[in-house]
Computed example of a mutant assay.
Amino acid sequence: MNVPQSLGYGPQDRLLIVNADDFGLCHSTNVGIQALLQEGVVSSATLMMPCGWAREAALWSARHTQLDVGVHLTLTSEWSALKWGPVYRAGAVDSLVTNEGYFCKDVKAFERRADSVQVHHELKAQVKMALELGVNVTHADNHMGSLYGLQTGRNFLSETFDVCAHYGLPFRLPRNLLLENGQFAPPVLAQQAMKHAEEAGRKGVIVLDYLLGLPFRSDTSESYESMKLQMIGLLKQLHPGVTEIIIHPSLVTDELCAFHEAPLRRGMEMELFRDPDIQATIRSEGIIPIRWRDLRDLQRGIAKV
């Protein structure tokens, strides 16, 4: 499916979604993301339902159903001082947790030990929890890429597509794989990405054309200006089609600093799409902002035909 043309845009139009990940991680992140959503400088956010502050974020989202909020499907728990585990309560989750009962710290451990049936139950439980709290869920994506098979090659995308199809949600998966510098990935990786996108399409799940973001780990010389220049570079290199750019914004507080290894970076990401230079680049490049809601409504409309 050519999604841009199905939405009424031209074949050369560059459509952009900006998503704020990790909504629900902590109160400081919630307050920051809420501000960006209300200001309209991000298109959407995604909720980490297993986290301790997810309920606050979900109830706020239920009061602001005009804003796009999805589910950040979470199966890892990466911080040492702040942990979380499964929300599924109706059966076994032993393959998803450590001896302490929390999710694994890293993706490789999750991929090696997770049972696909238990993964399916947990994914469905996370979406269902958001819906039960009143969230008008617009889409789904994945925390730390744990479902993509990036570390061992063992992915859980089939289970993910089944859950997304069940709830009528588009999913964050790039049809065309790009490297961090915005260039196309090598042919073997590109073919694999296209194969996954085709499976999603067979199950009626709409996916992205491209996915971009700043490198997750920063170097010691990084500044706000260098980060802004990187983002402007990504925006200028957008390809025709639907691109999502992901950011991880937050207020920088004692709460965030108590567990996060790079809190100042999250504070800088909080300001990126507020920046007049970023907004001017979007306008001058003729980039068209769209919403995950547009993709969700298209997917559900097709399913009814």
Rank of each mutant, 00 (worst) to 15 (best):
A197M: 05
S218P: 02
Q230L: 13
E225N: 08
R154T: 14
V163L: 02
I206K: 00
N176M: 05
G233R: 09
Q237K: 15
E199N: 12
G241A: 09
T243G: 10
P174N: 07
H166V: 07
N142D: 15
S218I: 14
G241T: 08
S226Y: 04
H143W: 02
G233Q: 11
Y148M: 10
G153N: 01
G182A: 02
A185H: 11
Q192P: 01
L189D: 13
S226G: 04
T220W: 09
K228Y: 05
E198Q: 13
P174H: 08
D219W: 11
K203N: 10
G241W: 04
F156P: 02
S158M: 08
L178H: 01
E225W: 06
G145H: 06
F171Y: 15
P215Y: 03
I232Q: 13
M144A: 10
M227W: 07
I246N: 05
E222H: 11
G145A: 05
S221R: 15
F161K: 01
L211I: 06
P170K: 06
E199K: 11
L169A: 05
P186L: 09
M227G: 06
N142Y: 09
I232C: 10
L179A: 12
Y224G: 06
H166M: 13
L235S: 04
R175D: 01
V242N: 03
G204R: 03
G153Y: 05
L229F: 08
P240Y: 11
R217Y: 15
T152Y: 06
G182S: 04
M194V: 09
Q191P: 01
Q237V: 09
V205W: 04
Q237P: 00
L235Q: 00
L178Q: 10
V242C: 08
V242M: 07
H196V: 12
P215D: 08
Q183Y: 08
I245M: 13
R217E: 15
P187T: 11
Y210F: 15
Q192R: 14
L173M: 10
P187S: 12
E225F: 04
G241S: 08
R172A: 08
S218H: 11
R217N: 14
S226E: 02
L211T: 00
G168A: 05
N155T: 03
M194Y: 13
G201S: 13
L157T: 03
P170A: 07
N176P: 00
A193V: 04
R202P: 10
